[in-house]
């Protein structure tokens, strides 16, 4: 794009779950709304629409973000993975451990957990990490709870969620 600001909308390309989509988006449109309304991928959920609940979590180039606070126009040419593109042991673990009740937060929980496991594997610490200079600690339940605190579950299925993630992580 040149230096002249483009007016109310722009044409962008998004690579979603391995498929390229060319879209004309109003600049105000969030990545979440593009996924749901323009592309028809309704697995990603809108909860609070203000970055407070995590239901909209998707993976951007493998990194978890809140798609509700992401303006789609900013993500031209990037790789997005939504729950529709996920095939991961976490999904069956959630079923085995009753990691949900209504299921509304589940797509966000699973995408978030995939991103979280990669962060932990890469040595990233959390607020629950005792000693910051030691990076390869085991993913304890306390670590999982802290690292997943950006995903709320109003049914309160947290114990099942922690157990499911713990089983896959350990």
């Amino acid at each position: 794009m040149g230096l002249t600001p483009s007016t109310a909308s722009s044409v962008i390309s998004l690579h979603i779950n391995g498929e390229k989509h060319q879209l004309c988006v109003d600049h105000r449109t969030s990545l979440l709304d593009v996924l749901r309304e323009n592309v028809g991928l309704t697995g990603t959920k809108k909860g609070c629409d203000q970055g407070a609940c995590g239901a909209c979590t998707v993976l951007l180039d493998g990194v978890r973000i809140n798609s509700c606070l992401a303006l789609a126009v900013q993500y031209d040419d990037r790789e997005i993975t939504t729950i529709e593109g996920v095939d991961h042991p976490l999904q069956e673990a959630f079923v085995r451990h009753d990691g949900f009740q209504c299921g509304y937060c589940t797509p966000g929980q699973i995408c978030s957990a995939i991103g979280m496991l990669a962060e932990h594997k890469g040595g990233a610490p959390s607020a629950a990490t005792e000693h910051l200079s030691e990076s390869d600690g085991e993913l304890s339940d306390a670590e999982i709870r802290e690292r997943m605190s950006g995903n709320l579950c109003r049914c309160g299925a947290y114990n099942g969620i922690v157990a499911a993630i713990g089983e896959v992580a350990r």
């Binding site: 809140n66 979280m116 610490p125 959390s126 200079s133 950006g150």
Partner: peptide
């Protein structure tokens, strides 16, 4: 997560990790 911040300025690393959520910090 930067190793120099974690060892030389641990309070800075901790302060960041105590803010927002992992998704927002990303």
């Amino acid at each position: 997560a930067h190793p120099v911040i974690r060892t030389r300025y641990p309070m800075l690393s901790q302060a960041i990790l105590h803010g927002a959520s992992a998704q927002l910090r990303n």
